[in-house]
């Protein structure tokens, strides 16, 4: 760790695959103890960035420093202090839950006894203790993901990298994962995660960058980003089958901004109820009206003109 508490520092970081530029010159700083997020749609360059931080993908350009070391030279030493939870589980389905942890611990040179003790603790932590001796194969997606998280913690890492930690999980399983990650955060573990779920970013991240097309388009805490790029409230209007465009013109002047999506119109306003009253005053009768708080989804929409989840 450098003296200012910065664990990861990237300057003009680039990743190219042939002619394709996956990461196009990003600057990032992650400090000790924070939960840092890369938010963006698929193909934004989040996973490529994570792989560079994980020291399994050499940067094509720019600077990258992790724990004060250079990934090009000190890959194994850096990886020894990282915990990685990849996007796709790569557990061994034939081994037991416990064996997956103990064999992995050995890659870090952890003595067998310590590995066994840590496996017991970690299985307790991710609520898989009673499945310790069953094979991995029949476990549910959520259990496998929790086991992968436990595996990422087996070396007591300084930084935990989580690539799309809840993608593909059902809502209940997601909440269990979030809850465990929140616990880690409370214990002061530095978390770096990628996600294309705004609720995940809002729940877990102290600070995040919004990525699009390999670049960073905004940076801040979820609250800061919402304050900077969106209004306090959003009114969602749906106007039946005629198409939303017909009505968009009639809404002019209500709120700060209007976004017309294929299935609904979003009005960005300070006071949602007042805006709804104004809509009705103009004799418009939307099929449905919803007033809600602004979210990171609105930030992303404002910055890129597109929604996060396709």
């Amino acid at each position: 760790m450098s003296k200012d508490g910065v664990l990861i520092r990237a300057r003009g970081l680039v990743k190219r695959f042939g002619d394709f530029v996956a990461v196009d010159g990003i600057d990032v700083e992650v400090r000790a103890g924070e939960a840092f997020g890369f938010l963006g749609p698929n193909g934004a360059g989040k996973s490529s960035t994570m792989r560079m931080i994980g020291c399994v993908s050499p940067p094509s350009g720019g600077e990258l420093q992790i724990l004060g070391m250079d990934p090009r030279r000190d890959g194994p030493a850096i990886r020894a202090r990282l915990g990685v939870c990849p996007q796709l589980d790569n557990l061994d389905p034939e081994l037991t839950v416990r064996e997956n942890l103990t064999t992995y611990a050995r890659y870090f040179g952890i003595p067998r006894r310590t590995a066994r003790e840590r496996a017991t603790e970690l299985l307790e932590f991710v609520q898989l203790a009673e499945r310790a001796n069953s094979k991995v194969e029949p476990l549910s997606g959520g259990m496998k993901r929790r086991l992968t998280i436990a595996r990422a913690l087996v070396n007591e890492p300084d930084i935990v990298l989580l690539d799309e930690p809840t993608t593909g999980l059902d809502p209940q399983a997601r909440h269990l994962v979030w809850e465990r990650l929140f616990r880690l955060k409370q214990q002061g573990v530095t978390l770096v995660l990628t996600t294309h779920y705004m609720d995940e970013a809002e729940q877990l991240c102290d600070r995040l960058v919004v990525m699009d097309g390999g670049r960073i388009v905004a940076e801040g805490s979820p609250r800061e980003l919402i304050e900077r790029y969106s209004t306090r409230e959003v009114v969602e209007l749906r106007f039946g089958a005629e198409g939303q465009e017909t009505f968009a013109g009639k809404l002019a002047g209500i709120g700060e901004r209007t976004e017309v999506l294929p299935d609904r119109i979003l009005l960005y306003v300070a006071d949602g109820d007042a805006a709804v009253a104004e809509v009705h005053a103009r004799a418009l009768a939307p099929a449905s009206v919803l007033v809600r708080r602004s979210s990171l989804e609105d930030v992303f929409l404002h910055l890129t003109g597109r929604t996060l989840v396709d």
């Binding site: 399994v56 194994p76 990886r79 020894a80 992995y104 870090f108």
Partner: peptide, 14 residues
């Protein structure tokens, strides 16, 4: 299929 090599590559192993 099981991609264990990738799991191993994320550890200090070269």
């Amino acid at each position: 299929w099981i991609k264990v090599y990738f799991a191993q590559a994320a550890s200090p192993l070269r």
